[in-house]
Amino acid sequence: MAKLRVKVQAPDADRDAYHVHLPTYAMVPGSWLPLIPGKIDKDGVLSTQPDGKPVVLSPAELAQLTCEVLVPDDECNDQGQPDKAKIRQKYKGQPRWDRDDVLTGI
């Protein structure tokens, strides 16, 4: 397994949770950055502020949101980074992963 830091994606139409846009991964506990009191903790985006109001991240905060993940070796290149060609081949024919922009924004 290769360990790398990647962007965390906000919930979207397909996935109702904060997630990483990779097919197979394991988040590393306590690795989230940046730490913003009242908004982002070491293991994720807080659900509520101390006053009970829901936490809402600004676009700038969301763009900076990262965590470490473990990714299978056969999806990475020799430098331990996700490899587009390997991912497309491994998940050939699967629309989410067999596409030219598969690693865009991670």
Partner: peptide
């Protein structure tokens, strides 16, 4: 195998800790 173990985790929004996608073939 995939494992995620967190302790002292603050209240948080829904978060996908582990993902496994079955490869083609």
């Amino acid at each position: 195998v995939g494992v995620w173990s967190g302790s002292g985790v603050a209240p948080h929004a829904a978060t996908q800790r582990l993902s496994y996608t079955v490869p083609s073939g």
